[in-house]
Amino acid sequence: MFKRGGYAEGFWERLGFQRALPPVAVGKKRLWLHAVSVGEVQSVGQLLRRLHQVGGWEVVLTCTTSTAFQVAKQNFGAYTIAIRPFPIDFWPSSVAAWRAIRPDVVALTDTELWPEHLTQAHKRRVPVVLINGRISDRSFRRYSHFRTVSKWLMGHLRLILTATEQDYSRFITLGADPQITHRVGNIKFDVAINGMLDEQAREQLRSELGFQAISEQNRPLVVLGSSTWPGEEALLIEIVDKAREAGLDARLLLVPRHMERRDEIIPYLEQGDHPWHLRSQAVQAPHSVIIYVGDTTGELRRLSYAADLVFIGKSIPPNEGGQTPIEAAA
């Protein structure tokens, strides 16, 4: 986050200097919902819409990364009373933010168990719900070394809704109460896929990227690097180079996991002979482009429609785990 400049926007709010919200409206409850990054923000979209539909809730949505903050403001302002950066988990900052927001319920996503945040909830007797609870291999190993701390964290949760059977087992192993821990599935798979492109719109998108077909029989093969991590862009460029040497009209659409990494990617592009283009400079690319970099926020889902073949980022060592394949599968 610090390296990518993720704390620049809303810096003072992250320190706890947040505008106090008005008292909760009569007959309503206030939910403080926290989603870390873009994937988590998009995954809670259906929940936000449902809460707005049923009424009775005022939702304050907080995010950790700058890109998630932008996506939240672009898409979910109508379903919330405030969208803010999440405060640093340090006593003065957390206390100040709690005094400004004054929630009745707190909901966390994945494994965002911040000790000071949970402590403030406990002091105020505010129930904390963990939705889409997940524990990665790395996190499980780390938590397993500190069982006392893990059990303390789990003890501050009123309800735990896990994404998978494995996550359920891991939470129980780390000290979660089986009576409040339930398997409900991964809400990321409940994301609504709106605005699907028909064939004509898909061709217009490919033309926008500079990948238009010369004829029906002469269409480029578009390879998408979806949410790529360091080292993966160079590999994909090499693959496209070899495909073109073999006679295929292969094109590469790169969408890095963090748009701030464009400066790391540009040297790879400059070393090659292929024309390239950055979406942040202009949406429309020249027709001669071979490599198009989607270095913008919140557009992966739409850009995925241009691809014939998709590589899911964070899949090549030393990276591990893989980013979500939902956009590609849709």
Results as ranks from 00 to 15, higher is better:
residue 11 F to M: 14
residue 26 V to N: 14
residue 35 A to G: 01
residue 38 V to A: 09
residue 49 R to A: 14
residue 53 Q to D: 14
residue 56 G to T: 12
residue 60 V to C: 03
residue 63 C to P: 00
residue 65 T to N: 05
residue 71 V to K: 05
residue 75 N to K: 14
residue 79 Y to E: 13
residue 83 I to P: 09
residue 98 W to Y: 14
residue 111 T to V: 13
residue 116 E to H: 11
residue 119 T to L: 12
residue 121 A to Y: 00
residue 121 A to E: 02
residue 125 R to Q: 13
residue 126 V to S: 05
residue 136 S to L: 12
residue 139 S to V: 00
residue 141 R to G: 07
residue 141 R to S: 14
residue 146 F to T: 13
residue 146 F to P: 02
residue 147 R to H: 10
residue 149 V to Y: 12
residue 167 D to L: 04
residue 168 Y to P: 01
residue 173 T to Q: 08
residue 174 L to Q: 06
residue 181 T to V: 01
residue 182 H to A: 08
residue 182 H to W: 10
residue 184 V to M: 11
residue 185 G to V: 01
residue 192 A to C: 07
residue 192 A to V: 13
residue 196 M to T: 10
residue 202 R to E: 12
residue 208 E to T: 10
residue 215 S to L: 12
residue 221 L to G: 03
residue 225 G to Y: 01
residue 226 S to A: 15
residue 227 S to A: 13
residue 232 E to R: 05
residue 236 L to A: 06
residue 238 E to Q: 15
residue 238 E to S: 15
residue 239 I to P: 01
residue 244 R to H: 11
residue 250 A to H: 04
residue 256 P to S: 08
residue 270 E to T: 11
residue 282 A to S: 15
residue 297 T to N: 08
residue 299 E to Q: 12
residue 307 A to S: 11
residue 312 I to L: 08
residue 313 G to E: 02
residue 316 I to V: 14
residue 322 G to N: 09
residue 328 A to F: 08
